[in-house]
Nucleic acid binder design. Structure first.
Length: 574
DNA sequence: CGACCGACTTGTTGGTATTGGA
DNA sequence: TCCAATACCAACAAGTCGGTCG
């Protein structure tokens, strides 16, 4: 894991850490130095012209109460403010910030008039939009300065980007789905809340003037530079390195190597869990069926969740109410219909024909149970992962998702890529392969609001282009007629021909674009590309097919996958 | 065990920068 | 050159998984 010998000069040599000797002793770094996190800007009081009314009466809020009211006012035209859970949580926490006098007066959220505050914030954001170029440039320069100062750290002799060096500002908690804590106040984080992690012999970051850190520690077994506990869920938040860093890149690489290892033993593992469907022991049958779902459907493991979080499930936490069994459905036998909310409360709906044995097992698991009971009552993620680790070192439930995603991409690329087509068409083929993975992983998105309209615009453009092509064809034909014998006219004809070709290319490109857009309207490709697809597959595909890597990965992604871009040749296979 | 928690990855959202066509 | 659509990226929520403790 560490560089052998002396430091290398950053500017003169690329840091090809994937060629360095590795060590795995639980120590994540030897030397770490940074400037500490950047805190949210202090609260700026509203101008006195921005009024707040309670029950028709103008009221001057204390600074604290005003700040929190502002968080709500900003969200006035958001769906959240129409939810009673959100409103109740907000109101309860808001009242905690009020003076005793305010508390006495303000007892009903519905009597609060935030409209003027809301209008003020809108106005502010409008102002920001209408700033002159110079003003915008100035702000950007300021941000760049902060970035330069606080956005990097030194780790084992190298300067690396930090991912999130800014502490989260205060605001209202926005949970996803039906989160019981939505609307609660996220408190302002102070230096006194923050733990710093760095080398003992480094320049220890200085807390802001007049403050001190909660703690400074020197723990080499973790990768974070700073941490604090967020008050709404009581969870730890961390300042960590950017994905382009060695630390993250190496971990990512490792992840894909484990997935490749699974590829080698997958046949054996599948044979084994199929055998386990017949086991005498209920817990083993449940484990085997759950594993089958994880493997075949790329379900997440499904840890148990607390009451005070949104009710979502994964494989191990599926309940009887989340699936329906059909001996026969739409001409298919033994169909299981899954319908549940997964991570981020995204709906998973799938009708899957399964082996008879699985079907019979499911009937058994569901016997004498209520809809709210666990499907796999003898199983949890701990048990499952322990078993998986016995099958293969490093194997856990999520490795199946990585493996199946990368495997599918490789297979789809092999199947879909036509070496004889243009680059835009090849990119379409790549996107189709990517899309197959996104569907497998259930990476959905809602159809963008502008989709229908922008599709319509595109079709219009295509029609117009078709006309132009026809026109150019006519012109070329004419020019060809006149061209006989005449040198000058031949040149004209040649030009017309070129123009026609260009137009045809443009048309083809538009048509490709239209297909791609429509096929993609309700599927998000980004998540799988970033987290599940071995980048070496894509890199190899680009190299083999003469597609520039920039067409597949943008700048950030290229930085994150630098290791793969360097490592993989055209013949790499997953 | 099982509850809890620390550390890290995976996921969506939404604001901002960039692009490309009128 | 302007404006809307799109691409990008930061922010931060929500998972996974291993370890510890009673």
């Amino acid at each position: 894991m560490f560089i052998k010998g002396k430091k290398k000069e950053e500017n003169q040599e690329v840091w090809r850490w994937w060629e360095e000797e590795k060590r795995d002793d639980g120590v994540k770094w030897k030397y770490l130095e940074h400037k500490g996190p950047v805190f949210a800007p202090d609260y700026e009081k509203l101008p006195s012209s921005v009024k707040f009314y309670y029950d028709g009466q103008e009221m001057k809020l204390s600074e604290k109460a005003e700040e929190v009211a502002g968080f709500y006012a900003r969200m006035l035209d958001h769906d959240y403010t129409s939810k009673s859970v959100f409103n109740n949580n907000f109101f309860k926490d808001w009242r905690k910030t009020m003076t005793s006098k305010e508390k006495e007066t303000i007892t009903d959220l519905s009597k609060c008039n935030f409209k003027y505050m809301h209008a003020y914030f809108l106005e502010k954001s409008e102002e920001r939009k209408n700033m002159t170029k110079e003003e915008k440039k100035k702000i950007k320069e300021k941000n760049d300065e902060i970035m330069e100062e606080y956005g990097y750290c030194t780790i084992d002799g190298h300067k690396e980007r930090i991912g999130n060096f800014k502490i989260e500002p205060p605001g209202l908690f926005r949970g996803r789905g039906e989160h019981p804590k939505m609307g609660m106040l996220k408190l302002r984080v102070m230096p006194e809340d923050v733990i710093i992690n760095c080398s003992k012999d480094s320049n220890i970051p200085k807390p802001p003037e007049g403050h001190r850190w909660k703690e400074v520690r020197h723990d080499q077994s973790v990768t974070w530079l700073a941490s604090w506990t967020e008050n709404v869920q009581g969870q730890n938040k961390y300042v960590m390195l950017n994905p382009s860093s060695k630390l993250k890149g190496e971990k990512d690489w490792q992840k894909y190597e484990i997935a490749r290892k699974l590829a080698k033993s997958i046949d054996k593992i599948r044979a084994e869990y199929r055998e386990d469907w017949k086991s005498k022991e209920m817990r083993i049958r449940q484990r085997a069926v759950a594993l089958y779902f994880i493997d075949k459907l790329a379900l997440r493991a499904g840890n148990e969740k607390d009451e005070d979080q949104a009710d979502t499930v994964g494989c191990c936490s599926l309940r009887v109410e989340h699936l329906a069994l059909h001996e026969e459905k739409d001409g298919k036998q033994y169909v299981v219909v899954f319908d549940f909310l997964g991570k981020d409360s995204i709906r998973y709906y799938n009708e899957v024909p399964v082996e008879k044995r699985v079907f019979k097992n499911l009937q058994l698991f569901m016997e004498n149970k209520s809809p709210g009971d666990d499907l796999f009552d003898r199983l949890n993620t701990g048990i499952l992962n322990k078993h998986l680790n016995e099958l293969m070192e490093g194997l856990t439930a999520k490795v199946f998702r990585t493996f199946n995603a990368s495997f599918t991409l490789q297979a789809q690329l092999n199947e879909l890529t036509d070496p004889d087509v243009s680059i835009p068409e090849k990119i379409l083929q790549y996107n189709r392969a990517n899309r197959a993975v996104a569907i497998l992983c259930n990476h959905q998105r809602s159809v963008p609001k502008t989709h229908a309209k922008s599709m319509e615009n595109l079709m219009k453009k295509i029609e117009a282009k078709k006309e132009q092509v026809k026109d150019a064809e006519r012109q070329y034909k004419d020019a060809k007629k006149h061209a006989r014998g005449s040198q000058k006219e031949s040149i004209v004809a040649e030009k017309k021909k070129k123009a026609l070709e260009r137009l045809r290319e443009q048309l083809a490109k538009l048509e490709v674009q239209a297909t791609d857009k429509d096929e993609n309207k309700e599927i998000a490709l980004g998540t799988s590309k970033l987290n599940y697809l071995d980048p070496r597959i894509s890199v190899a595909w680009c190299k083999k097919n003469g597609v520039p890597i920039e067409k597949i990965y943008n700048k950030t992604q290229r930085e994150k996958f630098r290791w793969a871009i360097d490592m993989a040749g055209p013949d790499y296979v997953f």
